[in-house]
Amino acid sequence: MEIFVQQLINGITLGSIYGLIAIGYTMVFGIIGMVNFAHGDVFMVSAFVALIASLILTTWLGISSVFLSLLIVLICAMLITSLISWTIERLAYRPLRGSFRLAPLISAIGMSIFLMNFVQVAQGPRNKPIPPFFQNVIVVMEKDGYEVTLAYKQIVIWAVTAILLAAFWYLVSKTSLGRAQRACEQDQNMASLVGVDVDRTISVTFIIGAALAAVAGTLYLMYYGVVSFADGFVPGIKAFTAAVLGGIGSLPGALLGGLLIGLIETMWSAYFSIDYKDVAAFSILVVTLIFLPQGLLGRPEVEKV
């Protein structure tokens, strides 16, 4: 029971991070029907940006307030990652719109390889550890000497995820931007006829996805305290799995899928085998796509001639 509660806490934390990345996948797939393969690497790049920003703040500027520095780091990471993602969309994906269907996917795979190796060349291949942001923990339960703990950093992750998702939900469902986005999702030609700037909307979609990935990247760095250039691939695939599991194109689905994947992964590691935890995640992806391709909350895809 105590182990279960502890894993529940860890799983929700991990799941929040996956959910934030998954939203980027699901939005881009919803609007242009493309698997943005480089999204996982954008997430990794954002973790590096956060790493460098936090090093500047702590070692050069000497800001001691943890919350203030976390806030600045988050904003820096979001801004710069959005800019990178915007440029990637502009240069690598937009020229391929209207090309044959696999072209953007191949371009995205190339972009993913490029980003990974770019960071490796620019920052070196070693793991980059940072001193922990928050070290305190709260003991939630205690039984027979086994303490169930809730770390401050986990609370921060939950809080940041919740606030960001609320803001994001408001943006998508209440503003004209979100309306334009949903219109483009349904029918791009029609949307452009009624005066929606489709190109701009797609750019904004990439920017929002990247900003959320940047939040995930910052939280990931804060949670694990270490990042390396290869850290984009596996979380990227897992977040994609989350998006598919929740129903690709569905925003609440992405979050739900993220939480489920996070929970399944931590539970699997705790009760079965830690070696095969990635196999578990990949198997879920395969099983979902084969038996439930529309996901938990998605609409089934209708095949038209």
Partner: peptide, 12 residues
């Protein structure tokens, strides 16, 4: 690095 870049450029 160049391999990834070549993939993107040739696709475009």
């Amino acid at each position: 690095l160049l391999f990834g870049l070549a993939m993107v450029l040739i696709m475009i």
